[in-house]
Write a protein that binds this DNA or RNA. Structure first.
Length: 378
DNA sequence: TCTTACACCTT
DNA sequence: CAAGGTGTAAG
């Protein structure tokens, strides 16, 4: 029930993971498409916690083609993208029976904290849903997105013209009128988990999320470098370094879906934060901070905490290999990085060739047909 | 599987 | 400086 797909074929990739979607004159750019694609090809995982966990990557869009003088609310929903429950088995995801929970009739949604705003305002800044948090706590009252662990989801951006300038609240649900549009980027699909399953995902998070900088090994940060695990046979190492098979993205809906008229959107609790119009556009540049100094106590503590669990040895080997991007100063680097590509190529062109091509072909066809159909309709 | 305390980090 | 976002280890 799991299928591997090679992300290496850039042509297919570009066609299937478009950075820009356009519908009814409105175009939406997934601003951080590059990082989404990196996660997507490993099989994105998002952590759920009781108190709520932010997404990384999060949904960040740039809008164009809106009516500058019109008021819009921007809302993100995260909907199930498959009817299955999954399990992580032998380094890959596999469907493990149907989901226990049926989808609720109403759509939960998370209003962007600027909503509502003039079209000109939305278009003059990046629209980032970094505040959105995911939780597995069903009694959550904090306004977080409630998801089921071990299930697959996909975020959708809803652009909803509104008449008055009142901020959307739970009391006053936003209604998806006939002029509302929904955009869905296939590459933002993810698996909800409570603990990371795929180590490649953990590494991507550590290497790209600024808040996880403390776990990086590159540069001056050598958290685990001074611990020397017992040697591991190269055979075992190779097997462990093999990447997990990403799951093929099977969309039941087109990437751009015209909304059904009057679809109700239930808003989560209104954000406590102040609603500010996006006047200044902080086109957020990544600030490189100075190199942190590690305390002696930290090193000792970490050293003591390391257990002799065999998985840790492999984990460290992986880290060392994955941490350094380009310089091949370590033999384990080439060993780790090279098989990666070989295995993926093998998966696509040997084991799963026909199945994958068929699936992707069907997907593309379905998307194209749906889009052109709706375009004609309008 | 999931939860929690924790060190370390960003903001 | 304080608040709060990270993955980890251990339960």
């Amino acid at each position: 029930s799991t299928v591997g797909v090679s992300p290496q074929t850039s042509l297919l990739h570009g066609a299937y993971f478009p950075a820009v979607l356009t519908f009814k004159g409105v175009s939406v750019t997934l601003e951080n498409n590059t990082i989404w694609k990196q996660f997507c090809q490993c099989g994105t995982e998002m952590i759920l916690t009781k108190q709520g966990r932010r997404m990384f990557p999060y949904c960040r869009y740039r809008l164009a083609g809106l009516d500058p003088n019109r008021m819009y609310s921007l809302v993100l929903s995260i909907v199930p993208s498959s009817p299955f429950r999954y399990r992580w088995n032998m380094s890959r995801w596999e469907a493990n029976g149907p989901t226990e929970h049926q989808s609720q009739g109403l759509i939960r949604a998370f209003p962007h904290h600027y909503s509502p705003c003039l079209g000109s305002d939305w278009m003059s800044c990046l629209v980032s849903f970094y505040k959105l948090k995911l939780t597995n706590c069903f009694q959550d009252q904090e306004g977080h997105m409630i998801l089921h662990s071990m299930h697959r989801y996909i975020p959708r951006l809803h652009i909803i013209p509104v008449l008055d300038g009142a901020a959307p609240t739970a009391d006053k649900p936003v209604v998806m009128g006939p002029e509302s549009i929904t955009f869905t980027f296939p590459q933002t699909e993810f698996m909800a988990v409570t603990t990371y399953q795929n180590f490649r995902i953990t590494q991507l998070k550590i290497n790209h999320n600024p808040f996880a900088k403390g776990f990086r090994e590159d540069g001056n940060n050598s958290r685990l470098q001074r611990i020397h695990p017992p040697a591991v046979s190269s055979e075992t190492q190779t097997n462990l370094l093999k990447p997990a098979e990403p799951i093929v993205l099977l969309q039941n809906q087109p990437a751009v879906e015209p909304k059904k008229d009057d679809t109700a959107i239930v808003l989560l609790k209104a954000n406590s934060g102040v609603r500010r119009p996006p006047k200044a556009r902080p086109n957020k540049s990544s600030s490189s901070t100075g190199t942190p100094v590690r305390s002696i106590g930290f090193r000792k503590r970490r050293r003591r905490k390391i257990r002799s669990r065999w998985t840790m040895y492999y984990a460290r080997a992986w880290r060392r290999a994955a941490a350094a991007p380009k310089p091949a100063h370590s033999p384990s680097l080439t060993l780790a990085m090279q098989p990666e590509l070989d295995e993926i190529e093998g998966l696509l062109f040997v084991s799963f060739t026909s199945k994958v091509k068929l699936l992707i072909g069907a997907c593309l066809e379905r998307v194209e047909m749906a889009v052109s159909a709706t375009m004609r309709k309008y």
